[in-house]
Amino acid sequence: MRKDEFWEGVRGGFPIMLAASPFGALFGALAVDNGFTIADTVFMSATVYAGASQMVGIELFGNHVQPWLVVLSVFAVNFRHVLYSASIAKYIRHFTPIQKFFAFFLLVDPQYAETEKRGERGLPVTFPWYLGFGLVIYFPWIFNTLLGAIFGQMIGDPKAIGLDVLLPIYFLGLVMGFRKRDRFLPIVAVSAVASVAGMHFVGSPWHVSIGALAGVLLAACLPPVETVAAPPVAIEKEA
């Protein structure tokens, strides 16, 4: 019974794992390009386990941004998880404390989406199911990171094979993933202008904090949006 649930989770997570694999390899290659060793790269995938924020981390580290700002940016990019764990709280209340620890560690976007879907349909969210779904994504993520890192170390000039363009486009894709949110355009416009101005007048890495702060302040200052039809949590795409 419990074993069946585990394998049901594994089957559910399998396509997600396939979709996330190129990103794991990409992270590995780019991390090595940004000054990480292969071991650092694998260590980061195994401990942080949040693709988008890992990309942000290596980008800022490669640009010699102060460590506290790197950690703060990782925190900011991962902030959506607060909404996830609040939202699935009702379905995993019966987990033991140790099970909860693992459950929260593995709480990536698709894990959240699938747990929410399952709970809403009235299907039981058991720990074996949750673990099966999570681990079939987690371990290949680490393995693909390793493959990418080994590949990255063999590359001489990353520009010659177009690696340098991938991070900005990846981040652009992530930004576009938020376009259904309230006030998306004004926030992005203000953050874009402020970050370019910050880069020009103050210099890297301050453009990150200056641009982000400008967008967030704008969102806080604009009058609250009246039509609250949106679901409490927007599900972004990446693992």
Partner: peptide
Amino acid sequence: PAAVLTTLVAP
């Protein structure tokens, strides 16, 4: 998230 990520795209 959108504000932070935009600062990595625009410059």
